[in-house]
């Protein structure tokens, strides 16, 4: 899941973000920050290691992390995302609990 620094981009959808600050508080690379108005800003995009914490823990589905070379994939098809097998699910679960 995790990759090298500087390989991913982080996109925050301002319209959906409520500024709760979970993403900024738990980001291991301090990529995100919340200013006084409650807006989430992407400060150090190069530090992102694509751990995916912010993306799956955002209650409002307002963050997207995607590979740097790709265009922002706003219109992806469901079929593009292959269903994970049981084993893969267990792997992600075990790596998460460490």
């Amino acid at each position: 899941m995790a990759s090298k620094r500087g390989e991913s981009r982080v996109k925050v959808f301002r319209d959906w973000c409520k500024g709760c600050g979970i993403c900024a508080a738990f980001c291991p690379g301090k990529v995100l920050s919340v200013d006084k108005q409650g807006n989430v800003r992407v400060d150090h995009e190069d530090e992102c290691i694509n751990c995916g914490f912010c993306e799956i823990h955002c209650p409002d589905f307002a963050i997207m992390v995607y590979p740097r070379e790709e265009r922002p994939p706003f219109e992806a098809n469901i079929e593009d995302v292959a269903p994970a097998t049981r084993e893969e699910l267990h792997k992600t679960r075990n790596s998460n609990s460490k």
Binding site: N50, I56, M64
Partner: peptide, 27 residues
């Protein structure tokens, strides 16, 4: 990890008002 958010957006009813009704930071 990249496609998690678009995936969720595909399952949502976009006719409903978003962002949803829960408090900021609600689990």
């Amino acid at each position: 990890m990249a496609k998690v958010t678009q995936l969720i957006h595909k399952y949502l009813r976009h006719s409903k008002r978003f962002p949803h009704v829960f408090c900021p930071g609600c689990g």
